[in-house]
């Protein structure tokens, strides 16, 4: 066990060392490492950023955008997914519309978002919403359709109403699939919020990262990249944790 941890730490350290050596000695082997900041520069820069209010402001705006967009997508995506899977009429009404929009990557909607919404802020939240919405919708729809009919039959022969079937069988039964969609949605939402910020934002980690690039502040760029990675990791972890708590009944999940 301890040996495996040693190996893992060695791997990380070797990666950092390689970065430092390549950049500090200005290696130029087709790839132009001399253009990039060194690991030490980036670390120093990161430490400095952590003391600045601006950094936390950026974190706050990116998190607020993704939080709002993702939350809206989770609610609307799950609800529509259930409706489309359960009602043939509504499915036929809504689904063609969704299928037309679905192949368009959310980020391609940036110009529309800018035109459509009074503020950039709302546009970015909209992009984030669209990005997360489709994976959540599709996973929910699939999960609801794949539910064993026995569960619903059991509830109905106990005298359960349509609403009771929805609340007691469909929603809890679809939860594992819904959380699959939420995980994917969170990943895509980050891609889109960062890209949207780079294009049209005034604050946020994505905006700051691109800003650093335009003013030739390369350590700042890498700090931005690392920050984005960390944020993505943390939010994905939160979704996964919630998912595990909600689906503890699945086989393979240890019961605590």
């Amino acid at each position: 066990m301890a040996r495996r941890w040693v190996l893992r730490v060695v791997s990380l350290a070797a990666g950092l060392l390689l970065w430092q050596v390549l950049t500090a000695s200005g290696v130029r082997l087709w790839l132009r490492f001399d253009q990039l900041p060194t690991a030490v520069e980036v670390a120093e820069r990161f430490a400095r950023q952590l003391t600045r209010a601006e950094f936390y402001g950026d974190l706050g705006s990116s998190l607020a955008r993704i939080g709002l967009g993702f939350l809206l997508a989770a609610v609307v995506g799950t609800a529509l997914g259930v409706v489309v899977a359960r009602s043939r009429v509504l499915g036929d009404l809504v689904q063609p519309l969704l299928e037309v929009v679905r192949p368009i990557p959310a980020i391609a909607l940036v110009p529309i978002a800018i035109l459509l919404f009074p503020t950039d802020e709302q546009g970015i939240v909209f992009i984030t919403f669209v990005a997360a919405f489709f994976p959540i919708l599709v996973s929910t729809r699939h999960a609801v359709r794949a539910l064993p009919t026995t569960w619903e039959d059991a509830l109905r022969t106990m005298g359960g109403s349509r609403r009771q079937v929805l609340v007691r069988v469909v929603l809890p039964g679809a939860l594992p699939g819904v959380f699959g969609g939420l995980s994917v949605g969170m990943g895509v939402a980050w891609i889109c919020v960062i890209s949207a910020e780079m294009i049209s934002g005034r604050y946020g980690v994505g905006y700051r990262t691109w800003q650093a690039y335009t003013v030739v502040d390369y350590p700042g760029v890498v700090v931005g990249m690392v920050t984005i990675g960390l944020l993505g990791r943390v939010t994905a972890g939160v979704v996964e944790l919630l998912g595990r708590r909600a689906t503890r009944w699945l086989p393979g999940e240890a019961r605590s």
Partner: peptide, 13 residues
């Protein structure tokens, strides 16, 4: 009118 299923029909959660 209760129906008893061959494959238990219990809700797994």
């Amino acid at each position: 009118r209760a129906l008893v299923f061959q494959d238990d029909g219990l809700l797994p959660w």
